[in-house]
């Protein structure tokens, strides 16, 4: 059937200027890829292996793929770190999809790292540094923080477990948290105060 005059009033937007969704700006000069690999490898390995539980031997291959993808887009990538981190998340999810038929998936694979979260790279960098900081803590401190923040146990519960008072376990949680934050900042050398 032939269409004739539109019945509804068309939006009066002829004078709207359409956006150019691809920038024709000159590409940027790329950084040395070897230097970038050395700078970001630890972070990307941490994300792939510890967040997505990709075996280390396969994670190294994924990181190679990520850098190859980066090289193809390098000239127009605005910010390398978030691009690389988002790409390794993408690659890790694809890894589990492709091997899912033969290998058991981690129980919480679907909860791993929302791909659209803002500041993902920053959060992973904090985690990587904090993991280092925890290694410098006394075992008792590590255990306390683990029970309280990771297992979600209350100060009362921890006091019972340690056979001490609630007041003391609260103090311990505070002191251990202060200490790990100090170590964290001594590693990053960035202090807020």
């Amino acid at each position: 059937m032939l269409e004739t005059n539109p019945v509804d009033a068309a939006p009066a937007v002829s004078d709207m200027i359409p956006v150019a969704i691809e920038s024709s700006a000159a590409p940027q000069e790329g950084a040395d890829i070897g230097v970038m690999y050395a700078e970001y490898r630890d972070l990307l390995l941490h994300v792939a292996c510890r967040k997505f539980r990709v075996p280390e031997i396969d994670a190294e291959n994924l990181i190679q793929e990520v850098f190859l993808g980066y090289l193809e887009n390098q000239e127009r990538v605005e910010n390398a770190r978030p691009w690389l981190v988002a790409a390794v998340c993408n690659a890790s999810r694809a890894y589990w999809r492709s091997t899912g038929r033969t290998d058991p998936l981690p129980d919480d694979i679907l909860e791993q790292s929302d791909p659209v979260s803002h500041g993902l790279a920053d959060r992973f960098a904090v985690m990587l540094t904090l993991r280092q900081a925890l290694r410098y803590l006394q075992p008792r401190c590590r255990e306390t923080l683990y029970m309280h923040y990771y297992e979600g146990r209350s100060a009362v519960d921890i006091a019972r477990d340690m056979d001490t008072t609630t007041r003391y376990s609260e103090k311990l949680i505070h002191n251990c948290l202060k200490r790990v934050r100090e170590i964290y900042f001594s590693i990053t050398t960035v202090r807020r105060r």
């Binding site: 985690m127 993991r131 925890l134 683990y146 923040y149 990771y150």
Partner: peptide, 11 residues
């Protein structure tokens, strides 16, 4: 810091 301590990858 406490947000990161709740993430399994840190441990």
């Amino acid at each position: 810091v406490t947000g990161a301590l709740q993430d399994g990858s840190v441990w």
